[in-house]
């Protein structure tokens, strides 16, 4: 049966299904009404029907106003329902675990914080909020998991995030939903939802050369970041300890939060958001640091904020 083909595998899936069911009911009712009226009129008022037409309504204003208001009210209700759910889906919970996704023609590369790597697959534990931080190395892709009822475009040159809580262990489709070139249809994979213990085993078996943050530490030196940001260089640069997740006052007077996007922009376009009280002397690393190294650097900077362990 159709509803068995697409399980409700995430916390938001049944809510989206509820919305879809509501929409189906409302639109189904309207559609039935329209087709029913068309059928009834077609039979009742066919030319050779002897029925007495009576007096034809002269004033149409009252009808117009009433069905305009009725549609407005129904549509507004549907809008609020859809927007409310969307707004909640847009804000990840504070304690979500981050997993990085890098897309390229035509594969998905997944990097867990512990350093585990996967291609065209994503292992996640059940009942744990997961936030995906995604970017693309070339064209626009789209990370689509029908069983979770979520998708998000993956853009080159910036981070897009999406979160979910898987609730049902199993293996589900992962599709690229944004046309990305020749092998678009082959850019598919699996999302494997495992119980906590299975997932821990999986992580242990695929453990590699250290966590992302550990891999990021030598990169921090190799790309020369430590020269200014470790506190003993000749150039005065803001300290990165405790930075992640904290508010950052900028030289133009505004305040932003040091999240993944901010760190990415600060590395690639340092002059756009200069920290208040510092000179704009940092060079841009755009085109210098590949996406996968950038993930490790950001993981390393995250690890400098111990109160937000990731």
């Amino acid at each position: 049966m159709i509803w068995k083909l697409l399980p409700d595998a995430s916390s938001s899936a049944w809510e989206t299904d509820g919305l879809l069911a509501g929409l189906t009911l409302v639109t189904g009712a309207v559609l039935l009404l329209v087709f029913w009226l068309m059928l009834v009129y077609a039979i009742r008022y066919r030319d050779d029907s002897p029925i007495d037409r009576g007096k034809i309504a002269e004033k149409t204003f009252r009808f117009e106003i009433s069905w305009t208001i009725a549609t407005l009210v129904i549509f507004f209700g549907l809008f609020v329902w859809g927007a409310d759910l969307y707004a909640r889906l847009s804000i990840p919970p504070k304690d979500a675990d981050q997993i990085f996704v890098v897309a390229k023609q035509w594969m998905w590369k997944v990097e867990h914080p512990g350093g585990q790597k996967e291609i065209n697959a994503l292992h996640v534990p059940v009942n744990t909020p997961i936030e995906l931080v995604m970017t693309s190395e070339d064209v626009i892709h789209d990370f689509f998991v029908p069983a979770f009822r979520i998708k998000r475009d993956v853009l080159p040159g910036q981070y897009e995030t999406m979160w979910f809580t898987a609730e049902l262990p199993g293996t589900y489709h992962l599709f690229c939903a944004q046309f990305c070139g020749t092998d678009h249809a082959a850019m598919i994979g699996q999302v494997v939802v495992q119980t906590q213990s299975d997932f821990a085993n999986w992580l242990a078996q695929n453990g590699t050369s250290g966590t992302l943050a550990q891999q990021g530490a030598p990169l921090f030196i190799r790309y020369g970041c430590s020269g200014c940001h470790s506190g003993n260089g000749t150039v005065r640069a803001p300290s990165l300890a405790g930075l992640y997740g904290s508010p950052v006052p900028l030289s133009d007077g505004s305040v932003t939060t040091a999240d993944d996007r901010y760190l990415r922009d600060a590395i690639l376009q340092p002059k756009r958001q200069v920290v208040a009280g510092f000179d704009p002397v940092m060079p841009s690393f755009a085109g210098v640091i590949p996406e996968e190294d950038l993930i490790r650097l950001i993981a390393f900077i995250q690890s400098l904020s111990p109160e937000r362990p990731r």
Partner: peptide, 22 residues
């Protein structure tokens, strides 16, 4: 009418997140 009404699905934000590009 049928096409227009299914447009309401796609205008509903959370529903579109699932149905978009399908």
């Amino acid at each position: 009418t049928s096409g227009g009404l299914t447009g309401l699905f796609l205008a509903a934000l959370a529903a579109d997140v699932h149905l978009h590009d399908t």
